[in-house]
Nucleic acid binder design. Structure first.
Lengths: 330, 330
DNA sequence: TGAGATGATGTGAGCGCACACATTCGACCA
DNA sequence: TGGTCGAATGTGTGCGCTCACATCATCTCA
């Protein structure tokens, strides 16, 4: 920096002013400094800047270690939004969501002196672990479910998404909808089930017991094989709401293998709108989550909080994507 | 740090020694310092450390901004491997792969003083842009295709993967294999086509002209519709090697809609083994890329290079995953 | 015409750490 | 018992920047 100052014939402080866009610098000296910077190929040292200002201009993002579409898309949106505002983004991934690992990852971020954290945290214990950690910086917790202090909750409205799917099926004329639910320790799964249930209750319908599952196409296939037999004997459901698209995919395959026609014999609706779901056999009606917006909003909220503002919980609305896998009952 | 030193009754330098695991510190003073650190909740300031050592302990990863399975999985593996070794990982994503954007992103990393960069760069111009940038730190370029100096190339052997798929189909008895290729500016696509072509040439077969496509299921569907008509009139291919699983998915749907049976009327092989491809209709035979290993190797190579070692190009072998979508010709 | 206000610039200090060097301590052997 | 050597510890300095403050030039209006 002093080299630049020397070349431009000013003091180091004036260089600093130019760099920080301080208003009171005359246009021609500004130009001179900028030229000197260019000819010297000078680049401000972040470490020194961070040391002097006690600010790192970095946010941390913890995300799932599974390459899933949703978390990955959210991460990308977060990064873009952050970089646009001049922030650096550090990531940490978690394969196994337990309190210890979560703690370690948050520690990793605190070591790095991040100024805020976004946690893409789909499981209940993760949310808890985050709360327990009591981070000294703002934390945006992307997680469905009930709010807690100490973090800023933000989520796609899973319950609404499930309601959209369920209402759509009931409005098509189905008497009730079977739910193939996600794992019970995932907040999204719990919320989706709650949304599905609430629609039935509002309409005075007793829904069939949900079938418990994980998030995999394998499990969907298994469940689908079982249902196919019931459907062929006429005692199965006429409409199924799967907790995610992968489950739905496995079920579609099972139905296809067993000669159960979708949507003629049974309607299927998924959740997520994963890449390619528009070309499943048949194309899958599903609920699309606006991950981009989720990422952008999380950065906006976080940066507001970092700047000292009080920010509250937010919910983002998903939307139903109508395709061919759902129709009126047989 | 001086607080810790005072509490432990030692000098700040001794604290520094404990932190850096210097050997000549007596066990009991080490203990005392550690206790003091714990009671004070002291955390070393990375900025000051970076300033003093001129090292940031950070690597940058630039990846695609599309939430695709491959890049996302690679990123995760990179991050895990790096964190394990005590490195921080900063990310930057690119939606649009042009030279300018690439330049901007690499600048972003240089501003941040990263010590090494991993570029997950599937397109030819990206690789070029990276070379042109002439980064002052080691760069691992995850990209198929020819090697260049200035970066450390690393890739999954796309050509081998394509050969695996093509040989598998020819060995099943097909006279030739039609290739539905990816976009020509993607290195992976070029390599896959080259692998497919080389097998035909070795066996003295003239392959049919490849059908150009992008990476999407939509395009696969279009292509599939066209092929279905040919196949039903007996003049279509008996085996198709799609450049990726999404293309294959779209084709499978088109075949299904047009009553073309897979694999009875036509065999289909994909590339990637995306989540759920085992439950496509029918389950898709495809080529699996070891993204985890790719990520781990890239970090290993990068850290070696950062440490000053000379490291060379590497190729990682993919594997064929046999499922139901390919069989003998009709 | 001069005092005050404002804008443009310079000066010095300190952020918290690691490095090079100086010093102290203790053990061991002649 | 003194000398030597190495282990253990302390002292001072500088990394490159921003901040608070001081200074100087310029303009405005009474």
């Amino acid at each position: 920096m002093s080299d630049v100052a020397a070349l431009a014939g000013v003091s180091h402080q004036t260089v600093s002013r130019v760099l920080n866009e301080h208003p009171s610098v005359r246009e021609d000296t500004r130009r001179r400094v900028l030229d000197a910077i260019a000819t010297l190929g000078y680049r401000r040292n972040v470490a020194a800047r961070a040391l002097a200002t006690a600010r790192s201009a970095t946010i941390g993002v913890v995300t799932t270690g599974s390459g899933l579409f949703g978390p990955a898309s959210t991460l990308i949106a977060v990064e873009e939004a952050a970089r646009e505002q001049g922030w650096y983004v550090s990531v940490a991934t978690i394969r196994q969501y337990d309190g210890v690992t979560m703690h370690r990852v948050l520690d990793h971020f605190m070591d790095q002196a991040v100024e805020g954290i976004v946690v893409i945290a789909p499981q209940a214990d993760v949310a808890e672990a985050v709360h327990e950690f009591r981070a000294p910086v703002p934390v945006v917790l992307i997680a469905a479910g009930e709010t807690e202090a100490a973090t800023i909750p933000l989520a796609v409205d899973q319950r609404l998404g499930a309601r959209l799917a369920t209402e759509y099926l009931l409005d098509l004329g189905h008497e009730s909808v079977l739910h193939v639910s996600g794992p019970g320790d995932w907040l999204d799964a719990v919320e989706r089930e709650a949304g599905w249930r609430s629609v039935h209750e509002e309409r005075g319908i007793t829904p069939p017991d949900p079938v418990g599952a994980d998030w995999t196409a394998d499990r969907g296939y298994q469940v689908g094989l079982g249902l196919a037999d019931q459907i062929r004997t006429g005692e199965g459901p006429t409409a199924v709401f799967a907790a995610n698209d992968h489950l739905a995919l496995g079920m579609l395959r099972a139905f296809w293998e067993r000669g159960v026609s979708v949507p003629r014999d049974v309607s299927v609706v998924g959740f997520d709108d994963v890449a390619g779901s528009g070309h499943f056999v048949p194309p899958l009606t599903t609920v699309r989550q606006p991950f981009d917006e989720l990422g952008r909003r999380s950065v906006a909220l976080l940066l507001e909080a970092v700047a000292g503002a009080q920010v509250g919980a937010e919910l983002i609305a998903p939307m139903l994507v109508e395709r061919a896998s759902a129709g009126p009952p047989p």
